[in-house]
Nucleic acid binder design. Sequence first.
DNA 1: GTCTATAACGAGATAGAC
DNA 2: GTCTATCTCGTTATAGAC
Lengths: 199, 199
Amino acid sequence: MAVPGRAGGRDTASQILDVAERLVQTRGFNAFSYGDVAAEVGVTKPALHYHFAGKAELGEALVARYAARFQAALEHIDATTDAAAKKLAAYADLYQQVLMEDRMCLCGMLAADYDTLPDTMRHAVVTFFDRNETWLAGVLEQGIREGTLRASGPSREIAQMVIGTLEGAMLVARTYHDSARFVTTAKCLLAELARGPGS
Amino acid sequence: MAVPGRAGGRDTASQILDVAERLVQTRGFNAFSYGDVAAEVGVTKPALHYHFAGKAELGEALVARYAARFQAALEHIDATTDAAAKKLAAYADLYQQVLMEDRMCLCGMLAADYDTLPDTMRHAVVTFFDRNETWLAGVLEQGIREGTLRASGPSREIAQMVIGTLEGAMLVARTYHDSARFVTTAKCLLAELARGPGS
DNA sequence: GTCTATAACGAGATAGAC
DNA sequence: GTCTATCTCGTTATAGAC
């Protein structure tokens, strides 16, 4: 339950979000339609427009829900894990769980679609990355204090690299249908950040 | 001229490829149309169909040209650079040049669109990554022999991480309209791989 | 090699009944 | 809250003239 709320689907709005989320994560924002979602949920297109006025509004709701769920997962890590290195591993595991459902990170996918997104969605995607960066920078600083992690530069910059590496590893691994490829990169990354004899 | 051939545009086919390439790199494969390309090149849609039967064929030609150009750039690096660490820096610089034109790597973008691509394009994208991985692994092994690079694991796995990191850093940096963000991550990555007191 | 014209389809969206 | 029916537009693609 690192990513709670996905199993849900009692009401139509949740079902719409569930289906649309999967379609965006696998096909991208410009390769899914109201028709696709409606058919899969078992309603008609106007029913979708009742719940989400347009594709922009649906997209905004998608990012908002995903970001909230991710934020909750980060808080869950903070609440249940002490060591910074373990927090980092748990963070990478969040990505891995997404990939093992054959999905790209929602915001990673939307980053690819960025130039075609409505403004509100753009801002929401950037905010998602900002929050991840802030959380990661905190974990890195904790690890440096503990002496369990090392940073060869400012913690925010290392945090940016971690996000980029995990998003990129997901992106590429999906073309190989090989989640092991992601796991390998995540392990390399964690090994690099673990306190070796560096700085 | 690390990426030769882009300036070209004598014949219509080249112009079509140039425009389509930029549109795919900025908007994705599912967010550009024959109409967009035709309008920009200054011809009509049937003229495009004359040169490239359909979107699939255009996409294949796009990846083939991009991959060939990239391959040529790698050979250029090999021919003009000795030290492995400098080759690695030159490799990261190839990505940076693409990003500074406000573009995503063509194959990174197509990786996001992967689930919606025709089969021939899928294979071409994977082959692109494979060739990059092979070249990078060779450079890493050279660096280990020289004692200028270190690898905390098998060179092919490190090569995979390098590709993932650079693709992901590009992907995210584009949402910030901030190529400096990519440069920072690339520097961190090169610093990690440079021979510190590690293995 | 490029055009006009058009076919055939799917997209996002709305009106209005129930 | 969901439906039928419809509108308008953009999409890929083809036929056939020049």
